[in-house]
Every structure is written in C-alpha cells, then in structure tokens.
Design a protein around this nucleic acid. Structure first.
Lengths: 232, 232
DNA sequence: ACCTGAACACCGTTCAAGT
DNA sequence: ACCTGAACACCGTTCAAGT
C-alpha cells in the first residue's frame, strides 16, 4: 500500500477533524495511515511542507467562477467563501495561518480577488493590499471563532477580568457579553460590510446614492479606467 | 538570586529580540537567567502562561490617554499604536496572536477602543465587534510583516509560482511586486483607511459631515482608560 | 521504491533532593 | 522559598537495513 501525497493530505485533514491540530504529529498521522512516522518523509521533506499542502487543500475551491454581480458583492462573496473553507475543518484557520509558502489554490484565490478589484477600478498594487487586508480579517475572525469552540465554558471573561483586578466600563461588559452571545456569522458579516463599504467609498469618493445599510447592491459597474485619488 | 515574574518576562522579551520565538524554550530562557528550565515553573505554571504574560507586556501602553481629536482619528491612532507595539519586539505579533487568555493591558486597550466607538454612536455590541475586527486586521498585518523579515530573499514569489505551474494574471504580478516593494507602513495605513472610512459611513450614513469633537450620544463622559488595582 | 527500527537531539513538565 | 538534577513522555528528523 504505497502512499501518495494526496492520500497523506486527506488523512491529515481527517485527523485534524477528529483530533485537532495540537494532536497532529508525524508519528500519530503515520499511525493513522498504518505507517511509522519516519515513512512520511518519503512524501514530504518535513512537517511544515505537509501542513502547507493541507492548507492549500483547505482553500481549494476559492477560485471557482463568480456570479456576475456588482463588484462589492463579489468581494463579499469571496470573503464568505474563504470563511466557509476555513471553518469546514477543525483548526482550519490555524493551519492556513501557519502557512508560509502559498500554494496553488491560495494564489488562484488571490488572483481572482485582485482581478475583481482591478475591474472595480483599483490599481493593481492597491488591489493587492486590499486582498491581503481582507485575507487577514477573514483569517483572524475564523481563528478566533475556532479557538472559542474548544474553550472551557465554565470560565467566562467576567471571572478572568475580576481575577486580574481590571476595572472595565459598562460598555465593555455589554460588548463582551454580545461577543459570546451572538452568531459569529453575523459578527463576521458586520465587519465585512464595514470593510466593503469603506472600499466602495475609497474607490469612488462620496457622491451619489445614500445606501444606509444592508448588502451593498450598488448599481452597475462597467470597466473603468483605473483612476484613484487617495486622501490621507 | 531569586527571580520574579517581571524579571522572567523581561528576559523573555530580550531573548525574543535576539533569538526569536522559535528559539524560545523553557531551557534556553532559563539559561539566559542562569537557571535550569524547570526552575521557571516556580513562577509560571506553564509556558503558555509565561507567553501570555509576555504578550500582555508587549501591549502595555495601549491604554494611554488619547488626544481629543475626532473619533475616526482616535480609532486610527489606536490601530497605529497597536501596530507599533507589536513591531517593537521580534515576533511580537506572533506572540500576541498565540495568546488565549487576554491580560490586563489587552482588556484595557479593548475597553478604550470600545469607549471611543460608543462615544461615536455605535451600540456597545457593535463597538465590540468592530474592535475585534480592527484587532485582527492589525495583528494579521503585523504577523505578515514580521514573517517577511526572516524569509530568504533569494526566493521570490515568481519562482514559487512558476514551480507550482500556476498561471497568474498580469495584475497579480504587479500586485505582488508592489507588496514586496512598498513600505509596509503605507500598506497598513491604506487598509486602515478603508476600514475607518467604512466605519464612518456605517455609523453615520452619507449625510452632513462636520462637528468633529464631542459627538457624544447623550452625556459627556470622560475619556479615560479604566483604572487598575495593583496586583500581579 | 517504500517502509521499519532505532537512534539523535531536542522538547515541556514534574519532582525528589539539596541549600 | 527557590533551585538543581534527573527523569518521563514525548517531539521532528535521519538513516541504515530490510522487503
């Protein structure tokens, strides 16, 4: 039974789901494949490379074609697609965050995002910065979300704060209660909307329509010449 | 020569600066203090707790009083303050990212940010979500920035992409070149400006803009970091 | 070509024993 | 009270030897 890279990656993903990243050692992953730990080094030069491959597998369908909707919706969709991919496997966000060398799927996803932004009128350089900013936001949110999945619920923030002798404001108390009480998806969408709103107004300075809240369905977006003036 | 927690934390910070997080083991940190590794367990129950203390030391002056400028500038300032704190020590961002239990200074900084946003008109719950979103952005950016500090420069993204047989768009190429070529501070400020712009438009739909200071919802509460009783 | 078995150089953590 | 010395149960990684 000779192993292939894809077999190992798939086993790692299953191991992740059932045991978590902290338990994932070369020896134990090997055992899950009925093989000694050292045998994995026939297929990957080291653990980091193996995890890089796992990370790229996690984001494998980031490059799927996008519906033809206005660019802010496309950006929103890409962010939600990434979040869904990260949450699909236990500790998925942490695995992806630990990646140093981006894999093929990561590149494809970034490229797609950059192209959406360029079509929206952003110069390529800024499109790249925006893409990474968005990536950080989604990743950070997903890491936090998955971290709270395996925290002891018997110890809430109030106990910890008291133990530290820190006086907090009443607003802080409400805010923290809301953090543990509300749907992570809702919180994610809220922050995402802020970002996309900022994006719309940076690209196209405050003019025209007043769209208070709700998903940004700004009108048609033709291909425009990349012109942008950056304040600040 | 009896050690105190603060002595250990300071030594850890110095060790971090000179050797980096990957080299920071209990044995080696002990050696830097002329002590065996096991001796550190007199002062910290485990390595994680020690690193939590280091992380909280890194963000220690997040709660300093803010100048009385419009709230978007205060938010911007807080983000830049956090970034500066994370970059002050080698791998500072990674250390803070690894923290699970927030320390006193983390709480104080969050509270201050939440208060700024509440005074700007955000409900406490949303203020909390925004604070965390901002935190993720700053942290993610800083991690990336510090990661690139110790990467081999002989291997650029173009080589890696070719090795993976991925076809990328010309915009992607420009974007990636710009990522490695431009000042990280500028990229950070750009993303931050997008976020703050979004914030302004979410809180106050495109209406009149003016009235810089004191836009409190109702009363005039003092802008202060919460007090902290001595303890440690 | 692929895996076993065993080793190397480490880890974090614990704990009797010293001082 | 604090530290030493030594151990325990692991790591990632390497590599001769087997098949």
């Amino acid at each position: 039974m000779s192993l292939h890279q894809s077999t190992v990656v798939e086993a790692a993903l299953r191991f992740l789901d059932s045991e978590g990243l902290d338990q994932l050692t070369m020896r134990r992953l090997g055992a899950a494949l009925n093989v000694h730990g050292g045998a994995l080094y026939r297929h990957f030069p080291n653990k980091e490379t193996l995890l890089d491959a796992v990370a790229d597998k996690i984001v494998e369908d980031m490059g799927a074609p996008l519906p033809e909707v206005p660019w802010p919706d496309q950006v929103q969709l890409l962010a939600e697609r990434l979040r869904a991919a990260l949450l699909r496997h236990r500790d998925g966000a942490r695995v992806v965050a630990g990646t140093f060398a981006p894999g093929a799927n990561t590149i494809i996803g970034s490229d797609l995002t950059i192209q959406v932004l360029c079509r929206a009128g952003f110069p390529p350089a800024q499109a790249g910065w925006v893409t990474f900013s968005l990536f950080y936001y989604v990743l950070g949110h997903a890491i936090e979300e998955q971290a709270q999945l395996r925290l002891p619920t018997d110890d809430d923030w109030r106990d910890r704060t008291e133990r530290l002798d820190v006086q907090v404001s009443p607003q802080y108390e409400v805010a923290l209660d809301s953090l543990s009480g509300t749907d992570p998806g809702e919180r994610f969408a809220y922050g995402l909307q802020i970002f996309v709103t900022g994006l719309r107004h940076i690209q196209k300075p405050p003019a025209a329509e007043a769209d208070t809240s709700g998903t940004g369905t700004s009108g048609t977006e033709p291909l425009e010449s990349p012109r942008q003036e950056q304040g600040r």
